[in-house]
């Protein structure tokens, strides 16, 4: 029972040379957890800067997107027998001060999946019009389907227990856009999800995953389709061998 819990922090990064080094250094001041940066075939010096700051680098041979980079991190965590995993963005949106608290709550087994919410605890986060609309829509959908309230369904600041990230290494993980669909999937599988208040700042570089009208429309379409498919599948599917292909 004295088994020391292994913890890691995964940061998917694509062309984040301006911020990644500082983020890794700040995290190292706060926690002793292993820091793994998944470089999604960046065209700049993201990998070098992260390595110099003290992170372990996993480099994709070509760009595969945010969700796939996350899944590579989950696979690394499973292969190296980590017990808990925290994921955060490499663009400086997520404040590392909350890392110890997120790990503490997941370690006490109060839940399997912990999300940092920018809307809890009186935080005054100002989201853009489209982001704000998306958050409200997905909040409502999650409430209708699961009966639970998730205030920040698009938060990428998350802490996962081994049971959860082991499942995410499988092909049922939606690598293109893992957002509200993942939350509904976990509720359907019977996992406990909780939120904690965290501070977030809008992306300092002003970049977004969903830039452009067509990308945004595709994102909404894909998210609705993904949720619809999850709802169509019977709960028994997720315990069957097909889900673990």
């Amino acid at each position: 029972m004295d088994h020391k819990q292994k913890k890691c922090i995964i940061i998917p990064a694509y062309n984040e040379e301006d911020t990644i080094g500082g983020i890794v250094k700040n995290i190292k001041k706060i926690t002793s957890a292993d820091i793994i940066v998944i470089d999604d075939a960046s065209e700049d010096c993201t990998a070098e800067k992260a390595r110099y700051a003290g992170a372990l680098i996993i480099s994709h041979p070509f760009n595969m997107g945010y969700g796939t980079a996350l899944q590579t991190g989950y696979k690394y965590a499973v292969r190296n027998r980590y017990d808990f995993l925290l994921q955060m963005d490499g663009d400086g949106q997520h404040d590392p001060r909350y890392i110890p608290e997120l790990f503490r709550q997941i370690e006490t087994k109060e839940c399997d999946f912990l999300m940092g919410s920018r809307f809890l605890g009186g935080n005054k986060y100002k989201a853009g019009i489209f982001k704000s609309f998306g958050i409200r829509i997905f909040r409502l959908i999650i409430r209708i389907i699961t009966g639970e309230t998730v205030t920040d369904p698009t938060s990428g600041y998350q802490c996962l227990s081994r049971k959860v990230f082991a499942i995410f290494t499988r092909d049922i993980f939606p690598c293109d856009y893992p957002d509200a669909n993942v939350i509904i999937l976990l509720y359907r599988m019977g996992f406990k999800i909780r939120e904690v208040p965290v501070d977030m700042v809008p992306n300092p570089s002003g970049r977004s995953m969903h830039q452009g009208g067509a990308t945004l429309m595709y994102y909404f379409f894909k998210m609705f389709l993904s949720i619809f498919i999850i709802m169509l599948r019977e709960k028994s599917f997720y315990s069957s061998k097909r889900a673990f292909k």
Partner: peptide
């Protein structure tokens, strides 16, 4: 292709370690 690329990345990282 995705699974293969991820495996290559992981093996490369472990090899470097």
């Amino acid at each position: 292709v995705k699974n293969l690329a991820q495996k290559v990345s992981l093996l490369e990282a472990e090899n470097n370690q």
